[in-house]
Design a protein around this nucleic acid. Structure first.
Lengths: 251, 251
DNA sequence: AGCGACCCCTGATCTAGATCAAGTCGTGTG
DNA sequence: CACACGACTTGATCTAGATCAGGGGTCGCT
């Protein structure tokens, strides 16, 4: 999909076109502004699976866009209980806070090998003043993330284990397929353990296991070795209580 | 507290100074820009308790700042289960979405008599282009709201009923006192039924009732007739597992 | 005064999901 | 090859919180 003939239509990564060019924070930029955005960018960085690249309580001074790979945001309680707040796919925007010097309130951990775009918090105010479209874009992305967080909250607060699991897996299924090049087929790669799923949904991994077995026995889905296969999207959506407004999952 | 000597330092409401001038979306504005913001504002409006002023599934075309009174955001599931997503106090910013024409994803209901500032969604992009500080401000407010939503999610997903109730009430206690003129004393007005509390925390009102009794018997708090009295903030904070980063509750 | 709508409160019982305990796999490693 | 480790599985039991059922108080309305 070629873009209008500007000098620098894409932000290069390792000499390649940026995969999240159209869905991330950079979407509204083009032409000269895109070049400026690139000077605003502080770095690109890689993280290995398991790496905590944001740590609750520390102050980071930077925020991120995920270029490739999966991560998740989480909060730890004093006694070790963990709540996963969000799964971050390519295009996700994270780490931004109003008070630039304050410690961050959640941790972020890589689930796969991943690469991120790093922006310095200190210069964001100036940059937004020169490029107002970034401010609006950030507000829009934040609004979408709020929608996801609210959905997640309804799931955990008011749905049964069965509904929660169906809903999360179906949501991830759609989110992945929305932007992945090979977006057909009923199978996606999903680098989560049953414990991740439990910690996202307020359940124990034991109970997640039993719930998955049930869904498998009903021929709704299979989840095995990091691969999710949705056998019957419609019935699964029914179980999940999906409002089918999948459009909102888009960035 | 007098501000620098500009012509129009406050947005007038019914001839009075705006109560949320320093905490809402307008905080970074002053002087001429403040006048411009006022022309951006579409209206002021009042709502009576119980009034749904945003309805899930309808498209609104406007977003709001709460000037006075309480409201709450909620989602309804098909079978009537309700999840309260957030309580909105003066200064709250709500109803903004990336896709201006899309239906809103949650409902908003007034808890008390309230007044709101109404902004048209259609003109926000233009206005932000002329006044970049609004875009940044919206992003900041959204980041704070995300923090609250994440907190809420951790509560509901990973804490016991006792911890949830303590945490919510203490949070509201601090949020109210932060901006209320009479911010001393151990008592605040809190216009919630036990059912509201339950629907916010993923509990039944019956269980909220029992939990409140327990907290009352332990002389931690009393909640009666819309009035919350925190008897022992420190012990209550302990029960709530509060991380004491109350600073973040500020707008 | 009488009535209906809401809240608040409490006891008895039930159940979804937690906890405890053990065993199977698969995979990397000294 | 043995063996340690992490993820997945399954059964038995327990419990936090739901559900069911009822009683009482207050307020506004006729």
């Amino acid at each position: 999909m070629p873009r209008r003939g500007t000098k620098k239509p894409y932000i290069p990564i390792d000499g390649q076109a940026c995969q999240v060019r159209d869905i991330g924070i950079c979407a509204p930029f083009s032409g000269e502004a895109l070049g400026a955005l690139e000077t605003f960018k502080a770095a690109e960085r890689m993280y290995a699976p398991g790496r905590d690249f944001l740590v609750q309580g520390e102050s980071a001074g930077e925020f991120f866009t995920v270029l490739d790979g999966w991560a998740f945001l989480y909060e730890l309680l004093e006694d070790g209980r963990r709540q996963i707040l969000d799964f971050c796919l390519p295009g996700a925007f994270l780490g931004f806070q109003p008070d630039l010097s304050a410690p961050v309130t959640y941790s972020a951990q890589a689930l796969t090998d991943m690469s991120v775009c790093v922006f310095p918090r200190s210069r964001v105010a100036d940059f937004v003043r020169q490029h107002p479209e970034l401010g609006l874009r950030m507000a829009c992305v934040a609004a979408r993330d709020q929608y996801l967080a609210f959905r997640h909250l309804s799931n955990v607060g008011r749905r049964t284990a069965r509904e929660r699991v169906a809903s999360l897996l179906l949501e991830l299924f759609f989110r992945v397929r929305l932007h992945s090049p090979a977006s057909s087929g009923d199978k996606i790669v999903i680098p989560l353990t049953q414990e991740h799923i439990g910690d996202a949904l307020g359940l124990t991994s034991v109970h997640v296991n039993r719930t998955l077995r049930q869904l498998r026995e009903e021929k709704l889905l299979t989840l095995k070795g990091g691969s999710l296969q949705v056998l019957d999207p419609d019935r699964l959506a029914e179980v999940a209580g999906f409002e089918s407004d999948v459009a909102f999952l888009r960035h």
